[in-house]
Design a protein around this nucleic acid. Structure first.
Lengths: 151, 151
DNA sequence: ACTTGACCTCAACCGCGGTTGAGGTTGGAC
DNA sequence: GTCCAACCTCAACCGCGGTTGAGGTCAAGT
């Protein structure tokens, strides 16, 4: 009873995490640099990821797939607890927020689709009054550089 | 009756086009380099845009807003006639295709939202069988470099 | 004729989301 | 103890969608 099991029993190397998540190692290192995931280091400086990291990575990829920029994903992930392993309630809280964002996003797309149909379909092609041209929603200009805006 | 009006009566300078479309001149030049719009040049090498270019630009921006990459927009615009000024039917054809893409896109988002709710909500957090992790839709990997994939 | 602002090109740079490769260490199996 | 795959860092590069700035020309008004 004195040989105290090391906690790494459930930890994954970067290769394992990559295989399980389908995300390239280079991307995982990149995510770590960006503060989206974190790892413990072995005495030999190798990464060891805790089990819940797989979940985080899945969440990151799923979010990205709908066009959410990494910075926004990082913010969202920040609601997860620091020291403790996130539990179901933590993830539920996270996904609830995401659900709202997704709904907003979906509504925007629907609006655009309807405008497109209406506007071109009706032949109003005068852009001054066209819903297509004057899309009411402001999409945060936020400085120069590429737009990005998460679609 | 002999002073034959010059055709530039309805042409716009880049500044005018920029003002009317709200798109920076730098972006308009960029679009031209990328083959999304085109211009006539004056004897002094200045650009003159035909009237329908305003429409093209509006279309480009609207498309971008929903996350469609410029390359895809260029392809879509290729269905417009070369010599002739595009008429209503041309634009309608274009927008019909877009409407379908938008619908597909919207459905993808809805699916993700529902998966998220179900998956996290139900506590199934085992990623192996999770819809979040194993999103069935293939999103065209197409080579290395940034994903892009138009969201 | 001259000024002034709008236009031109070209090259360099930006943020994003990574990949690639060189050169060096680690660690598990034999 | 030695081997080799798997890991490490760091710097450079990629495509995308542009912006910025230097240095030069054009055209409309006085």
């Amino acid at each position: 009873m004195t040989h105290h099991l090391s906690p790494r029993a459930k930890e994954a190397t970067i290769g394992e995490l990559s295989d399980r998540s389908g995300v390239p190692q280079s991307a995982l290192r990149f995510y770590e640099r960006q503060g989206l995931i974190s790892s413990r280091r072995t005495s030999g400086n190798q990464r060891r990821f805790s089990r819940d990291t797989l979940r985080r990575v899945a969440f990151i990829r799923a979010s990205q797939r709908v066009g959410i920029p990494l910075a926004a994903i990082r913010e969202a992930l920040a609601v997860l607890p620091e020291g403790r392993t996130p539990n179901r309630a933590d993830w539920a809280q996270l996904s609830e927020g995401w659900r709202k964002d997704l709904n907003t996003h979906i509504r925007r797309l629907e609006r655009l689709r309807d405008n497109l149909t209406e506007c071109i379909g009706c032949g109003c092609l005068s852009l001054d009054k066209c819903a297509l041209a004057n899309t009411d929603d402001r999409l945060g200009e936020r400085g120069p550089g590429a737009r990005g805006l998460g679609v």
